[in-house]
Structures are given as structure tokens and as C-alpha cells.
Computed example of a mutant assay.
Amino acid sequence: MDLLALRYFQTVARLEHVGRAAEKLRVAQPSLSRTLARLEHDLGVPLFDRHGRRIRLNRFGAAFLRRVDRALAELDDARQELDDAAGLERGIVTVAAESLLALTEPLRTFVPGHPLVDLRLSQSSAEGMSEKLRSGDVDLCVTSQPLSGDDIRSRVLLDERVMLCVPAGHRLAGRGRVALADLAGEPFLTTRPGYWQRALVERLFTKAGLDLHIVCEGDEAAVLFQLIDAGLGVAFVPSLGLRADTSTTVAWLEVDDPECRRVLSVAWREDTYLSVAAQRFRDHAVEHFHAQAEAGSRSE
């Protein structure tokens, strides 16, 4: 049993597909299959149930995977800790977020000063981010919803108003402020279930006793204002989106409800080693948003 075999097994176990695992690992599929067969022979039990070309992790494999995940995570943490102790300012920082828009400005000021840090971003729902943290697939999560897990810690980046965006010619466009009752029957643009915008609109409409009429589910923030401008519907958008809105045909209105807010946080696992590079990006993001909040309060 060697480390390479364990990493091969870990990848196949997560994907439950030898072909996709071979592609991800960049090895030949026959070689990967032989490595798995040797590992099972060494252990004395099958780790997968095989049905033709399909494989499924069995109870032996599931038990073994839990230990392998833990062992490989410890080894990866040890290597990163030694690099940090040696003063090597490099490494890979993996970040998952519900929306990448919130990261654009912190990245703009972080990347030039850290050329040896390899930042890798992905988009995910809150449930997906919790799983990625537990499995060690990401170092940090930037989320607008609490993530489950006793070992997950977080720091607030931004606490902001969520506003209503409507087409300029909409019946509510000139109001400046609206109540939830004013939104009865309005067609809404929002995200798929699992994302904070969907959770917020469903919670507010349920509280107000209103039926929610969704006409579009999507995650492309770049086209949201165009869809509103086209008259497809209205949407809840965080105040941060004001910077991304370059149109003059979308009206922003305050919502007369104290719960119509977003709290953006950065989260990480407390029970694993967080590299210096990841710590620096986390702290940089916190400082960036706090400086923005202070600048905003001074200008009011």
C-alpha cells in the first residue's frame, strides 16, 4: 500500500467512475484499474461493488475512505505547514462562493501582491460549500448563508441592504421604497434553490403570506439587469450590485423590511491546518470589506 494508490482510490471513490477518475488523475485507465486491484488484494476485501462498467463504493470502501481522507489531509497539512515554517510564500488557495461577483474587488488588490499564490475559485450552493469544506476540497467559503458543522468558523465580511430592482417604467419605479405587500403578484427573477437569494425571497414572501411567482431561475449575475430591463420580472439584489449596474433603465428601491438584508461571511474549518496563503487571503478579504464599510459610513 503506497500513497499513490491511496490517492487513486480516493479519487475513484469520490467519482465512482474509473474513466472520469483516470481523466482527472491523468493516468491510463488500465493502470488505474490495476492499482485498485492491487490495493484490494493487499487489504483482503473488495472496496467497490462492480456491475459491468459501473462501480459503487461498498461498506468496506466507505469505511476505508473515511480513514484515507483523514490520513491524506494530515499529510497535505503537514507539507503545507512545513512550507509555511520555511517562509515559502506560495501555495494553492481554493475558494468556493455563491457568487463570484463579491470576490472581484478583493482579488484585484490581492493578486498583484502575491504572485506565487495560485487562487482557484468555484461557485456552489451553501450545501455544496459545507460538503467541500468537510471533504477538504476548498480552504475557504464566501457565503451569505450559515454553513453547517461544529468545526466551521466564520467572520463577517459585509452586512448590507438587499434592494428591489424593477424596470424603469415599472409601476413601482418612482416609489423609492416598497413594502412586501406591494410585491404581490410580481414575476420574480431569482436563483435556483440552495442559494441565498432564493432562501431570502421565499422566507420574506412566506412571512408576508404572499404567493411567490418565479419566472426565471439562474445564476448569471451579468445578465440579471438585462432581464429586468427586458421586462421579464423584478429581483432582489444586494446593494453591492449597484456597482455592477451600468444601465439607466433599472430602478433600485429599498424594501421596507429589516430582514431584507444579506450578511456575507468567509468560512473555514477550524480542525484542519489553514495555510499562510489561505489565511492571508481570508484576512485581506475581511480588511477589504471593513475598509469599504468605514468609507461608506463616512460618506453618509
Results as ranks from 00 to 15, higher is better:
10 Q>I: 08
19 G>W: 13
23 E>Y: 13
26 R>K: 14
32 L>R: 02
34 R>W: 13
42 D>P: 03
42 D>T: 15
44 G>Q: 00
44 G>T: 02
48 F>D: 05
52 G>W: 08
52 G>P: 01
53 R>I: 10
54 R>E: 12
54 R>G: 06
59 R>T: 15
60 F>Q: 10
60 F>E: 10
63 A>Q: 09
67 R>T: 13
68 V>R: 04
69 D>K: 10
80 Q>N: 08
80 Q>K: 10
80 Q>A: 14
82 L>F: 15
89 E>V: 12
90 R>D: 02
91 G>N: 09
93 V>H: 01
94 T>L: 09
94 T>K: 14
96 A>V: 09
97 A>F: 01
108 R>T: 02
111 V>R: 07
119 L>C: 06
119 L>H: 05
122 S>F: 11
123 Q>H: 04
124 S>N: 07
133 L>P: 02
137 D>T: 11
140 L>M: 07
140 L>D: 03
144 S>F: 10
147 L>D: 01
149 G>T: 04
152 I>C: 04
163 M>Q: 09
168 A>R: 07
172 L>I: 06
172 L>C: 04
176 G>R: 05
178 V>W: 04
181 A>L: 11
182 D>I: 03
184 A>M: 06
185 G>Y: 11
187 P>S: 05
187 P>N: 03
187 P>A: 04
191 T>D: 00
192 R>I: 13
200 L>S: 01
204 L>R: 02
205 F>C: 00
209 G>W: 09
213 H>G: 02
214 I>N: 00
221 A>F: 13
221 A>T: 13
225 F>L: 07
228 I>V: 15
232 L>T: 13
235 A>V: 01
235 A>S: 09
237 V>K: 00
239 S>R: 13
239 S>I: 09
244 A>Q: 08
244 A>K: 07
244 A>S: 12
248 T>I: 07
250 V>N: 01
251 A>W: 01
253 L>F: 08
255 V>C: 03
257 D>L: 06
267 A>H: 10
270 E>M: 06
270 E>F: 10
271 D>P: 05
272 T>N: 04
275 S>L: 07
276 V>S: 12
277 A>S: 11
279 Q>E: 13
283 D>N: 13
284 H>S: 12
298 R>I: 13
